[in-house]
Amino acid sequence: MNVLIIEDEDLTAERLESLLLRYDSGIQVLDKIPSVREAIEFLQNRAQELDLVFMDIHLEDDLCFRIFDQINLQVPIIFTTAFDEYMIRAFRVNSIDYLLKPVSLEGLTAAIDKFKSMKRQFSKADLDTLLMAIGQNKPEYKTRFMVTVGTRIRTIEVAEVAYFFSEEKVTFMVTQDGQRLPIDYSLDKLTTMLNPDDFFRANRQFLVSLSCIKNIHTYSQSKLKLELAPAPKPEVFIGKEKITPFKSWLDK
């Protein structure tokens, strides 16, 4: 059996190799590769020699999934991961095997045995489903906005944004240094595009970042008043029904 190990920690790769040889001394480890770039190079030329690939998620230069953007890989894969709940869930759903680090001989034996038994049923479709599931589990949040100021086009990093608010159906972005810039997205749309750990929809008019909240006042039994920096024109209140989600957001 010919095997390729794709892993960015040399010692972990060596350990996997020695366990593979203990499992079956006839196994040939054709190479140990630490990066996406070198993996693509190898697989483009020699994928047909391989029976099985062990693949770590996080590699020297990128995530291993980039390999599949470049190559239509038909070789079965056992993924290795240190700790990743999303991965584990995705693998369970798709019943393709994975190994948790540090890899034990028992774990490796079970994975290869299981793998051998399902080899016949294995198809490319399983891998696609798996990769899709992983993609869906890791939402990509917006990281910057392009804005036009007069004739100039520039970008604002999300981290620079204090809050968003809407006024007469126009959405504005207010940066931490006090710039007020109109943008094309509605507050509803923005709420889905930004990381919910960082932004909270305080009310219909305001979507605020954690960092812009300078003070929180109990205004009445059923209302909180937010003091934001830079200070907005209308006062910002959090109504009764949003107080609980707001507090749990603060306490996340």
Partner: peptide, 13 residues
């Protein structure tokens, strides 16, 4: 988590 398990993985080698 990641740091711990990756470190243990290296250590086992």
């Amino acid at each position: 988590p990641h740091f711990l398990f990756n470190s243990l993985s290296v250590l086992s080698s």
